[in-house]
Each structure stands twice: as structure tokens, then as C-alpha cells.
């Protein structure tokens, strides 16, 4: 039984103020460093004895990592930007409302005031609520190290529970979201046991609509495989189709395709059977909302 009042293992806590200082620390030989941002996941894991790093290196005093900017149709969010700020920025842009909904549902007020966008991604939880919306939007990450930088697609970055493609001396610098063109609507939903809980299943959708024709449709589902999944089948079924009724058999068929494409398991939060059943219903719900939003955008 762990004592959740204290952290028993000893570590050095470093709070560099600049990226140069940060990369200097990460490049020291023989280091057992663990990057920490808001700490809302990792400090709990350390209390539970699931992580015992010798050194914690914080990104939270580095002002260069706290920004949101829109340039050339891309929204770039600095790694250490807190979720409250991210949620507020996304609320203002209609085509990425799914990201506002996903980020807002990551946790309660206190968590949104502490946790960061890169932290939610790098923890690499299959249930991370920011990830399905980011996947449907075609998000890339800019990774930086002392030697330079590289771009990675989000879907190639998260490899499994707790595993990412980040190098030992690298950090996530920014999260880059291409803002959709006119006529795009998006939506996010999550099934949870109580408010501010971890998702049994979460889903995001982004639809490009032209009149009553669905031009394209991107869907991502979390908590139903080792990583959140981008699911192609609904796009295949619905692209180019006339949607006369958002509750039609066509949409139902796309929902069934979603429930067949996921790879859920039985675990402490839910069962595979429940997740498959509810995936279809959630798909139909988010489709309806995003479809209506896409129309509003065009008019």
C-alpha cells in the first residue's frame, strides 16, 4: 500500500528558465531524467511507485514554451501552454470545437489550471482526451533538441501506453494544428463514470460538408486500443455521399464500421462489449453535431 501523502523516492528537481539551459541538462551524460510539465500524472505515478526518476526536469519556467499563435492557417501551441488557455483559444474557432470539447474534458478546473497540452500527449495514455480531436485535425509536433528540430505526425509519435517516439535529449516544442477550411464541422464526446473521470471511450470527428454532401469525414477513437486510433472506414463509406438524414442507414453503417474497427479490451473502466456497442451510438451522436456545425460555418 502506498502512502499518497508524500513522494517517498528522492530526486533532484530542476527548473531551467530557457531552452538552452534545458538542453544542457538533458545532454549531461548518464542522466536518468524525466521531463515534467504540470505534473498531474507523473507526480501521482511517483507516489504510487510507478516511476522513480533520479531527476525531474520541469518545462514550466520556460516562457518560450508558453504561446498560442496562428500563422499561415496553422495554430501552433507551445508545449507548456496550460489546458485552460488552449481550451479558451479553441472555443473561438468553430471548425475545431472538438478540440475545445476534448481539452475541456481532460479534467476539472484545477487540472486545467495545471496540466499542459504536451503533457497530455506525452503521457501517452490511450484515454487522453486531447488526442482524438488532434488526430482528426492532422496535427503534427515540432520536436527540438540541442542539435536541431524535426516534425512528426501525431499518429507516428504515440507508440503505446506511456511510449512515444521522443528521443532522450528531445522535447516537444509545439503542437501544430492545420486549421480546416470553410465548411468543416467537428465534435467530441466521451463516456465516463462520473464528471472529470478518465474516459471509458472517447471519440472525435471532423466533417467537410458541401451543401448536403459529405466531402470527407475523419474519425478517431480513444480508450479502445493501446493508442487512440484514426479510423478510415467512415470516411470510405460517407465521402461523396448525399446525407439526406443524419440518422439514415448510411450513418448507422458508418457507426457499425467504427465499432468493428476498434480493438477494445475488458479493464477496470469498462468492457470490450460495452465499448463496441457504445462506439456506434457515439459515432452517430458526434456525426449529427459536427454535421450541423459544418452547415453553420458555410452559411
Amino acid at each position: 500500500m502506498h502512502n499518497s501523502r508524500i513522494i517517498t523516492n528522492e530526486f533532484d528537481f530542476c527548473q531551467p528558465a530557457t531552452l538552452t539551459e534545458l538542453f544542457g541538462l538533458l545532454n549531461e551524460p548518464g542522466g536518468d531524467d524525466r521531463l515534467i510539465a504540470g505534473g498531474t500524472d507523473i507526480l501521482v505515478m511517483m507516489k504510487e511507485g510507478r516511476h522513480c526518476p533520479k531527476r525531474l526536469v520541469s518545462t514550466m519556467k520556460i516562457d518560450e514554451l508558453d504561446f498560442i499563435e496562428i500563422k499561415d492557417g496553422v495554430m501552433r501551441i507551445g508545449a507548456a501552454t496550460k489546458l485552460k488557455k488552449v481550451a479558451a483559444a479553441c472555443r473561438e474557432i468553430k471548425s475545431i470545437l472538438a478540440l475545445h470539447e476534448g481539452v475541456s474534458s481532460i479534467g476539472k478546473l484545477q487540472i486545467l489550471n495545471m496540466a499542459t497540452i504536451a503533457g497530455n500527449i506525452c503521457t501517452a495514455s490511450p484515454a487522453a482526451d486531447s488526442v482524438p480531436p488532434l488526430l482528426t485535425l492532422g496535427t503534427t509536433l515540432t520536436l527540438k533538441s540541442g542539435d536541431g528540430e524535426r516534425q512528426v505526425a501525431l499518429e507516428d509519435f504515440i507508440l503505446g501506453p506511456g511510449k512515444t517516439a521522443i528521443g532522450r535529449d528531445e522535447i516537444v516544442y509545439s503542437v501544430n494544428i492545420p486549421l480546416p477550411a470553410e465548411g468543416v464541422g467537428s465534435s467530441f464526446r466521451k463516456m465516463e463514470r462520473v464528471g472529470a473521470d478518465i474516459a471509458k471511450i472517447n471519440i472525435a470527428i471532423s466533417i467537410k460538408r458541401n451543401g448536403d454532401v459529405c466531402e470527407s469525414c475523419k474519425v478517431a477513437v480513444g480508450s479502445c486500443a493501446p493508442t487512440a486510433l484514426l479510423i478510415d472506414e467512415p470516411g470510405g463509406i460517407l465521402s461523396g455521399q448525399l446525407i439526406s438524414d443524419p440518422e439514415s442507414d448510411l450513418i448507422r453503417r458508418a457507426g457499425v464500421a467504427v465499432s468493428e474497427a476498434i480493438r477494445p479490451i475488458d479493464d477496470i473502466r469498462s468492457t470490450a462489449e460495452y465499448r463496441r456497442k457504445v462506439a456506434k451510438v457515439l459515432f452517430m451522436d458526434v456525426f449529427q453535431v459536427a454535421w450541423d456545425r459544418a452547415k453553420g460555418d458555410a452559411s
Binding site: S4, R5, F13, Q15, G39, T40, L43, V44, S58, M60, K84, L109, Q110, I111, N113, M114
Partner: peptide, 12 residues
């Protein structure tokens, strides 16, 4: 801003 002191390091 409200934050949770039980998962905040004092030095932070």
C-alpha cells in the same frame, strides 16, 4: 487560480 497542492512540488 485554483490548483491542487497535493500534486504540486513546493519548489515549483
Amino acid at each position: 487560480e485554483p490548483v491542487l497542492a497535493c500534486i504540486t512540488l513546493a519548489k515549483a
